[in-house]
Write a protein that binds this DNA or RNA. Sequence first.
DNA 1: TATAATGTTTGAAC
DNA 2: AGTTCAAACATTAT
Length: 242
Amino acid sequence: MPEGPSIVILKESLIQFKGKQLIGVSGNSKIDQSRLADKYVLDFKSWGKHLLICFDDFTVKIHLLMFGSYTVNSEKDRAARLALTFSNGYVNFYSCSVTLLEGYVDDLYDFTSDVMNDNWDEVKALEKLKEIPDALVCDALLEQDIFAGVGNIIKNETLFRVRIHPESHVGNIPNTHLQGLITEARNYSFDFLNWRKEFVLKKHYLIYNQKVCKICNSKIVRKNTGVKNRRSFFCENCQTKY
DNA sequence: TATAATGTTTGAAC
DNA sequence: AGTTCAAACATTAT
C-alpha cells in the first residue's frame, strides 16, 4: 500500500466525497473527532505518503505506515481507526497514523518536493542533494524532505534503472547522473502508479526481490544499506558505485 | 508457523 | 546537546 503512487490511488478513490458534508465520524483514533462533525471536506490531496483530508482551517493527515489499509463503501472485520461517512458513501481507515494539523493544507506542505505532484521541482531536489554529499544515495532517495513519496521499492527500481549502486556517495555521483536519478525517481513512480492500478506491479520488478540480474544474468546482491538500514537489491556488475 | 516486509515517530541511551 | 538506536505500532504473504 504505502508508497507515494498508492496514496495517489487512494486520493483518486475519494474524489466522490470531495465537497461533501460529513454526516458521521467514528473510529478509535485519538484525534478530536468532534472537530470534523458536520464539516465539508474541501479536497483530498496527497503529499508523498501522506493522504490529506482538507478542511477550511485544519487538515487531517492519514499515514498508512507499513501496514495501514482502507476500504471505500465496504467494511473490514476489524475496528476502524477512522471512519468517515458522507451522504453518498463512506471510507474507513485501518491501522494507520491519524493526525489533525491546524491550518489549511497549502500553508502546511511544500508540494514541490512530492515526486508525484505536478509542481515537483527537480532543481530544488538537486540543490538538496548537493547539501548532503556524504550521504549514501540509498538514504538520500528515502529522504522525504527531498523525494516525498519514494519508498523502498521505488528506491531500488530507480537506482537499477539509472545503473547507480545504492551505496554510492551522493557527492561522488556526476551531475548528469544525479540529474538522471532525479528524473527517473518521478518517471518510475508513474510507472509504479500505472502498473499498480492494473495489479501488475510485481511482475514489472527489475531488481526488487529478484535473484538474477535481468541484464547480465549475474546474482543480485541483497543487503541492508545506509543509516536507514533498508533492504537494497543491486547488481555489482551493472550498477556503478561512485 | 515463524519470519520478514512497501514506514515513521518516539524516547532512552550514549 | 547532538547522535544513534531499539521499540512501538500493526498486517499479510511466503
